[in-house]
Amino acid sequence: MTDKPTFEENLNELEEIVQKLEQGDIPLEKSLEKFQRGMKLSKELQAKLENAEKTLTKVMDQNGNEEKFERDDNDEE
């Protein structure tokens, strides 16, 4: 869809950063850089999950339009 890194890619990057930092052996400047990048990533990822709207199920109609789909909403839960 876009070239922007996906949530997974960002998560993988964060995981990599943490592992690298945990292993040590990185020059201090670089580890600081990585730490900052990691904090930024984790904030972004968290925000993405926390702030994402709760979405309702939709249905594709004959004309290819997505409409709200609220079947059985009442007897749920």
């Binding site: 999950l49 994402a52 709207e53 709760k54 979405t55 199920t57 939709k58 249905v59 594709m60 997505e66 789909f69």
Partner: peptide, 8 residues
């Protein structure tokens, strides 16, 4: 709940 379900 943040995933969008679309029924076909």
């Amino acid at each position: 709940p943040i995933a969008q379900l679309v029924l076909f």
